[in-house]
Design a protein around this nucleic acid. Structure first.
Ligand code: NAD
Ligand code: NAD
Lengths: 267, 267
DNA sequence: CCATCTTTGTGCACGCGTTCACAAAGGCAT
DNA sequence: ATGCCTTTGTGAACGCGTGCACAAAGATGG
């Protein structure tokens, strides 16, 4: 069981660093584009630019896969596409089920890029009886009652969860019990899964909050640059009296009227 | 313009490490749940479990914000919710525009959790004239012609791109020219943006490919454990003659009538 | 066959992030 | 008050990821 682990810490991908694995799809996408334009070879510099990374990083990444380049020339595009595809396991077919066919689930089901890389939507599953049999993306929605059978009949190892957060943990347990060992979770919850099961999450809200943090930071720096850096508004340093008071009020909302809690951020 | 940088390397969030910033929303979510259950205080151990992280990591993360805990007791839930919200900039309102109201864009527009943390969908924008004025999530879709005016009138700094990949770069340029400085990109492309602009990407296909890599790895290890670890199939080590031949054939798939081509993907 | 020029592959150093482990802090009971 | 017990906050060690810089490899032209 273990506590909700979010990424793949256990598997310890022998040899290839996790950071490299995460970039391989990026390289593959850039290479595919080159391949379509019939470009025969590409240098690490060019490919790195197309993938939006540093060329040294790219070369080091490729070095984990083997020596597939030719010095003085670059990399053979088609050959590299094949090698990366093989390394990522895209030379085989991966049946996938999507659970929770609401707004998001339906959009995912309709997503073309889904099938373009060896992933095949094997089934769409929803708990709503009214959805049963209803076609979404040209495929009938099936009921959760048949989840186990669907997973096992199709040899599914990868599941996508797009249910409300409250149902996600339970759905993940059923998926795992039925044989799924990799989950892509769109529900905003931490999933607790056994060792050996990989979970990756996509959380729109978290991404926006991270952007907001930096955005606020920019606004603060800008204000500090314009003004004499005396006023605060959003900067972390001290904290104005009224803001501190609000914080104190929130903190004291339970017990006595200890109206203290001065300027925070001591350490 | 710089090459497509993907994450926030420039901003150098003074003080708070990027990895910590990325976890703050996780803590906030867990704390909000506790708050709703009227739990007054929580220990680092409990909160860490709820957020799916290590308790030492959580304490260190909080130490960057300040000393908000009480030794022997734990953290005041309400107070911490306030502090993290403030740090993330969620105490203010963030108007957001979504560009590209197709399957995904519509799902995002309908997403309730969007507005729950200070983010407000200020406008939905699409290039399709047929979409103009059509209500999606109770809001009329506006045409791209008015993009600049919408951004400026609403003081939008955060934009979400859900257009096809081919249009993403151009859309990002218009957004940025109009004043957007943070972009959440759902299109599978590397965006080239000027310094000072943050881009975060959500790419379903990449996530699935990473899962496939580990899935393949699991299958390989399993097979190796069962069999005598002699056969390859997917293991990285050397490269057998026939495998190399297949690769070479794939590389030549463009010119000659080599009717093979493994499983490699096209699009 | 040799010289030159381009580009790979990688040794190395550095910085960030994670984790351990513990002293200090504070509540609480006596 | 005093001592015990819990939990925080953090110093320090470690490991991973990144980027530099360059020697080696190989293509290409003479
Ligand atoms: N829509 C988005 O843009 C978006 C963005 C980020 C995250 N999310 C998250 O994705 C999830 C789905 O979002 P949505 O907007 O599609 O919600 P939705 O309500 O439109 O769809 C949820 C679907 O899940 C089904 N469902 C409920 N319980 C189930 C169960 N136990 N087993 C199988 N199916 C079940 C429902 O019948 C419904 O069809 C939510 O957790 C949401 O927070 C959505
Ligand atoms: N649907 C998914 O689940 C999913 C998942 C991952 C990634 N994506 C990516 O998200 C993007 C959108 O996917 P989708 O399924 O919603 O596609 P879609 O074709 O349904 O929608 C695209 C929308 O963008 C609009 N558009 C096109 N060019 C535009 C422009 N220049 N300015 C403004 N709007 C423009 C179109 O009119 C259309 O409404 C694609 O890049 C896709 O690869 C989608």
């Amino acid at each position: 069981m273990a506590t909700g682990r979010t990424h793949r810490p256990a598997t310890r991908s022998r040899g290839i660093p996790e950071a490299t694995v995460a970039r391989l799809p990026l390289y593959l996408r850039a290479l595919t584009a080159l391949s379509e334009r019939s470009v025969p070879t590409v240098s690490s510099e060019e490919l790195a630019a197309a993938a939006g990374v540093n060329s040294a990083k790219l070369r080091k990444d490729f070095s984990y896969l083997g020596s597939y380049g030719t010095r003085g020339v670059g990399y053979d595009v088609e050959y590299l596409v094949y090698q990366i595809s093989r390394e990522l396991g895209l030379t085989q077919d991966w049946p996938v089920v999507i659970v929770g066919i609401g707004n998001l689930g339906a959009a995912l089901a309709n997503y073309g890029g889904f099938a373009s890389r060896g992933f095949r939507v094997a089934a769409l599953i929803d708990a709503d009886p009214a959805m049963k049999g209803k076609p979404v993306a040209g495929m009938p929605v099936q009921h959760t009652d048949d989840l186990e059978k669907i997973i096992s009949d199709n040899g599914v190892h990868i599941g996508v969860i797009a249910t409300p957060a409250g149902a996600a943990q339970q759905v993940s347990e059923r998926l795992i019990a039925a044989g799924v060992t990799s989950i892509l979770n769109f529900a905003p919850t931490v999933l607790s899964v056994p060792d050996g099961v990989d979970v990756r999450k996509v959380d729109l809200s978290i991404e926006l909050q991270i952007l907001a943090f930096h955005e606020q930071r920019k606004a603060g720096e800008e204000a500090a640059a314009v003004a004499g850096a005396a006023d605060d508004v959003v900067t972390p340093p001290p904290l104005r009296a009224d803001t501190a008071a609000a914080a104190a009020a929130a903190a004291a909302s339970r017990k006595g009227p200890d109206g203290d809690v001065p300027a925070v951020m001591p350490a």
